[in-house]
Design a protein around this nucleic acid. Structure first.
Lengths: 233, 233
DNA sequence: GCCTGTATAAGTGTATACAATTATACCGAG
DNA sequence: CTCGGTATAATTGTATACACTTATACAGGC
């Protein structure tokens, strides 16, 4: 677990060399600039970004914590691969935790958060009709973030954000699917309704199902091609 | 997600300075040598262990990932506090994940793992009768570790081990309670039986309940005194 | 007395030099 | 040609020096 429990710190991070290296490398890994299992060399990265090895090394330690690279002592840092099974496991785990999150959110959500969720769902409908996939993805992320905050548990929030980060690499592919966007938003609306009704059981169940549906959809639409020949035992 | 997905690395870690600093500091924090919110200074730690600041700094980054310290840029590293609510949240989250773990373990456990579990339960009975709390705690940990391995998901295993690590500081207190030891082992036996029967639903439910019981017991017996006046908003 | 600003000290951030480890290339023996 | 070993290079690990940021103390103005 790793990482930053404090949002403010992440901001501050951007102003330190280590922070900048960290964010740059993370973006590059998530965007697929580096191949899986590709070795990251300290000097090469350092020269590329115009910094010395020290901040690079420290950024590596952070990336390892985020699970994006694996550091083998005296050997090197390698971009971690996610197997299909890993993705599946994460979605199953997330399914449970998103459910718990929805339950707690039902009990602790503020008026303000509720309103932002409503706005989110409303806006999503519009962009879904127009086929604006980019905005739809953005709103989808935000919907979940609001719920993470609303659950009033920084432990759970942190966990879910970590997982979300982790599957981001894969998630792009599934959001490019035109059918899922609208369907996903319908489910958001149902979850929101349950929260508004104060029905924690139903909210949990729906959020649970929402994740499983997202996974099922992803499997049907291209997870395999995204990970064709990179599986490991 | 803080940390090491590879066991071999942890071993290797012990032979590097950074690794040694990391393990030493972790043990010290978990054993309560440092107060909550105490500041860890790079030079002081370095001098104490006879190393320079570099490995200390890198160890800090790892500890931050494990959630044991919080690093504030340009200020310092502070031992993180766990509030009562954090502990409660973690146990609720663990309850779900231990349940999932038991379910998957039912589906994937090997003959060898099953036998070690049986031996574990059997031995625990003996030590429970004798009142050997130390051994009982050890076996309790091991029981869960076996299940984590048996679930055949390195993602879930990693999560659960992280959480376990996190509450270790608190857990000591609850295991010192004479009543819980035997009761806990009885529950282990039931879980094992469900796994043996191939009844995944029951295994999940029992493991679920097992965690909640552990938490309830802890609350009744001294969590409060361990965390009396250190809560935060 | 309190507030503010500046000087000093302490501590972290970064760069670099050196040590240790690991990978690579080359050469010789079989 | 292949296998093994050694020398060399490349890369990571660690220590240290310097830069920058933050905290502290003290002095002066109000």
């Amino acid at each position: 677990m790793s990482s930053n429990y404090d949002v403010k710190q992440e901001v501050t991070d951007k102003y330190s060399l280590r922070g900048r290296v960290f964010h740059k490398l993370r973006d590059d890994i998530l965007s697929g600039k580096y191949e899986e299992n590709e070795e990251l060399k300290e000097v090469a990265i350092g020269e590329e970004l115009g910094v010395s090895r020290t901040p690079v090394r420290e950024a590596f330690r952070q990336l390892e914590l985020e699970g994006l690279i694996q550091i083998i002592p005296n050997k090197g840092a390698y971009v971690t691969g996610i197997t299909e099974k890993d993705v599946k496991d994460i979605y199953m785990i997330r399914s449970l935790l998103e459910g718990l999150c929805a339950r707690w959110a039902t009990e602790h959500i503020t008026q303000e958060q509720m309103e932002e969720m409503e706005e989110n769902v409303y806006l999503s409908k519009f962009h879904a009709q127009k086929g604006h996939l980019e905005q739809l993805a953005e709103l989808d992320n935000r919907f979940h973030d609001i719920m993470y905050e609303a659950c009033n548990s920084k432990m759970l929030e942190h966990q879910l954000k970590d997982f979300h980060q982790y599957v981001l690499r894969v998630r792009k592919k599934t959001l490019a699917n035109k059918n899922r966007g609208p369907k996903s938003n319908e489910e958001h609306e149902e979850i929101l309704q349950a929260i508004k009704d104060g029905d924690a059981d139903r909210a949990e169940q729906l959020a649970n199902r929402h994740m499983i549906n997202a996974y099922d959809n992803m499997v049907k639409n291209g997870l395999h091609e995204a990970y064709h020949d990179r599986e490991q035992g």
